[in-house]
């Protein structure tokens, strides 16, 4: 017997499921954050070969940067599923992911500015990776603006899904913007990404923080999608019943 996945693609069945999963993801995110931060601050060296204690910004900067890109891909994924199968819940998921993605993108730029000021000597530079990350922020904001600009939900969903899909070109650009073959030939301030020369404790703390951010992203997306479901399905019988019971 196979699981009926379509059952969970209806807002009515997904609503309680999301509600049940939220606390789990929140707890895991919280515990991982505590462990990751403890490890990152107390089990890691104070001074690196090239950097001093400010390198610890890495424990929020890198996870936030990964999430900013991953969430965008998730958002586009749901939007595309919505465009192809015309499922309401997919569009609701896409709309619920966007604000978190925008927050993580902003955090990437913010923490990057502080790191950049200490290590490189500048808050901001038109470095390819920073520039494309800024455009990613514009894309998230544009997606949300377009969504709220069109009153007809179905049209709003489709238009913003198209915008998100076109903007997805930004993700590979961000990802590959630093790996230019000769560092003296390119203007990038970011160094090549490499896992090879990372002190083991730094790597552990960093990976734990990445998982923590992931779990948080799930939790907050589920929390938000419940709001979106209530709002959009407010005329459905099950919502009226649910609201009646809440009294």
């Amino acid at each position: 017997m196979s699981i009926n996945w379509f059952k969970y693609s209806s807002p009515q069945t997904f609503y309680p499921l999301a509600g049940k999963m939220t606390p789990w993801f929140n707890w895991i995110a919280g515990i991982l954050a505590v462990v990751g931060l403890y490890w990152g601050f107390f089990e890691t060296p104070h001074i690196l070969s090239e950097q001093k204690q400010y390198y610890r910004i890495l424990f929020v900067h890198v996870p936030a940067a990964w999430m900013s890109m991953w969430l965008y891909l998730m958002m586009v994924g749901w939007a595309v599923v919505g465009l192809i199968f015309n499922t309401r819940l997919s569009f609701m998921m896409a709309a619920s992911i966007a604000p978190s993605g925008a927050i993580f993108t902003f955090l990437t730029l913010w923490t990057g500015a502080f790191w950049g000021q200490t290590s490189w000597g500048t808050w901001w530079d038109w470095d390819p990776r920073m520039t494309s990350e800024l455009i990613l922020l514009f894309l998230y904001v544009g997606y949300m603006a377009l969504q709220s600009a069109i009153d007809d939900t179905r049209r709003a969903d489709r238009a913003s899904a198209l915008l998100a899909l076109v903007g997805a070109i930004c993700i590979p650009i961000i990802y590959w913007s630093v790996n230019c073959p000769d560092p003296n030939e390119c203007t990038a301030l970011h160094q090549q990404s490499s896992m090879s020369a990372v002190e083991p404790n730094i790597r552990i703390a960093w990976l734990i923080m990445v998982f923590s951010f992931w779990m948080y992203a799930f939790a907050i997306a589920f929390m938000r999608v419940r709001n979106v479901i209530l709002e959009r399905e407010r005329n459905a019988a099950w919502v009226t019943e649910l609201v009646g019971r809440k009294k």
Binding site: K52, Q53, W110, T111, Q117, I220
Partner: peptide, 22 residues
Amino acid sequence: MGGYGFYVWMSFGMTALLITAE
């Protein structure tokens, strides 16, 4: 933080603030 407290705490602080606010 070895003299870099301002930068480190501004980064972690903003992250904590925004996640809580969200």
